[in-house]
């Protein structure tokens, strides 16, 4: 959760200060990602790391971003609030951030997988889509006749 400092005076200074704070957790997470990637390539097992489950400060975040870098794919999902899915500069390593309708962070993950499950069209949704498409075509036909 982001800390919401109401006082702008303090807020700015604090944000500046916080961006330099590190917990030292970035390095172990990066090692975990390395191992997960090896595993993915070896037997296809995907791994998800919950960044909300361990102390992770702005400094750690910066290190993670700097090492992984930017990749080729970025997607914004509108799922009762925004979700951001990006492939990092290391193919197979994805960053997934979920936000609520107010823009507050809900959860943050690193997924090591070929394609994050959430990007795929879900069978249930596709079923709904099929029904919806059929209905629309029917409606379209009705209008033309």
């Amino acid at each position: 959760m982001s800390i919401d400092l109401r006082s702008a005076r303090h807020g700015h200074a604090l944000a500046e200060l916080k961006s330099h704070v590190s917990t030292g957790n970035a390095r172990p997470v990066l090692n975990e990602i390395l191992a997960a990637l090896e595993k993915l390539l070896a037997d296809g097992t995907a791994t998800t790391i919950d960044l909300g489950a361990l102390p992770f400060a702005a400094g750690d975040e910066r290190m993670l971003d700097a090492v992984l870098g930017k990749g080729e794919v970025a997607a914004t999902l509108e799922l009762s609030g925004r979700s951001q899915v990006e492939e990092t500069g290391i193919p197979g390593v994805w960053r997934i951030d979920h936000y609520d309708p107010n823009g507050e962070t809900l959860s943050r993950f690193v997924e090591v997988t070929f394609l994050p499950e959430i990007l795929k069209s879900q069978r249930e949704d596709a079923e709904t889509g099929l029904t919806r498409l059929a209905a629309r075509l029917e409606e379209l036909d009705g209008q033309t006749h």
Binding site: G81, H98, F109, E117, I118, D125
Partner: peptide, 16 residues
């Protein structure tokens, strides 16, 4: 409500 939204909910739930 799409299943993707549900997946997001479940992911957030595990984190919470």
């Amino acid at each position: 409500i799409s299943r993707r939204s549900f997946l997001k909910y479940c992911a957030t739930l595990t984190s919470a």
